[in-house]
Simulated assay, not measured.
Amino acid sequence: MKSIAIILMFSAGIVSGQQTMQLPEGQSSPKANLEEVSWIEGHWTGEAFGGIAEEIWSAPVGNSMMFVFRMVNDGKVSFYESGHIQQLDDSLILQLKHFDGNMKGWEEKDQTIDFKLVKVQPNKVYFEGLTMEKISGDQMNVWVLIEEEGHTEEILFAYKRVK
């Protein structure tokens, strides 16, 4: 499962166009605040990797929007993620940690997977290697750049809001 460690959420499909971005060398993240991405808040679910992916995001409070994620295959949890989008100085960063189905961490104790902010638009936020887009009030797409065995591909994850 660690081969999909960077995968965050949503039901999968290969993307032909380039949806993710990287910060140019030496460039800092742009100014942004949590209100600009507050549309991410909610309970989201979709199919992925032959199972069910579930993501729950909180409203912005205390300079962060926290989330939890679980991937369920064959009726059992494959892995969890916990993390946040944090207001860091005058910009944003998305950070997460992975856990197996028994809550044993994949990353070292003080290590996180970090996605620096690249760009914010009204219904789209670009972090390095991860893009989130509001399609409607009930749909959100996320594109994640995945590296596996020296090969890089961009994966589309599509989520629907749980009501």
Rank of each mutant, 00 (worst) to 15 (best):
E55K: 10
F69R: 08
S78T: 15
I4Q: 12
F127K: 02
V125R: 05
S64R: 14
M71I: 06
P24R: 05
M9W: 09
I93L: 12
I6H: 09
L8S: 11
G75Y: 01
L8F: 04
P60A: 05
I155D: 04
Y159A: 07
E25G: 02
S16C: 06
L96P: 00
T20N: 00
S91F: 00
F99P: 00
K124M: 02
L34Y: 08
I56T: 13
E81K: 15
M21S: 08
F157K: 08
I135D: 00
W57P: 14
E149C: 03
G129L: 03
T152R: 12
E81F: 08
W57C: 13
I155S: 01
V61A: 15
L94P: 07
R70A: 06
E81P: 02
W44V: 04
Q87G: 13
K163R: 10
V72R: 05
K76R: 13
Q87F: 02
P60R: 03
E108K: 14
G26D: 02
S28G: 06
V37Y: 01
I135T: 03
I6Q: 12
V118R: 04
W143S: 02
V68F: 10
W106F: 14
H98M: 13
E147D: 11
D110C: 03
H43F: 08
T20A: 00
W57D: 10
D114L: 07
S11C: 07
K119F: 03
K76I: 09
I56V: 14
M1E: 11
W106K: 11
G51E: 02
I155Q: 06
Q121W: 06
G26W: 00
R161P: 08
Q18R: 06
A12S: 07
T131G: 01
S3I: 10
P30T: 11
R161I: 08
L23F: 04
V77E: 11
V15W: 04
N73Q: 14
K134G: 07
I7K: 12
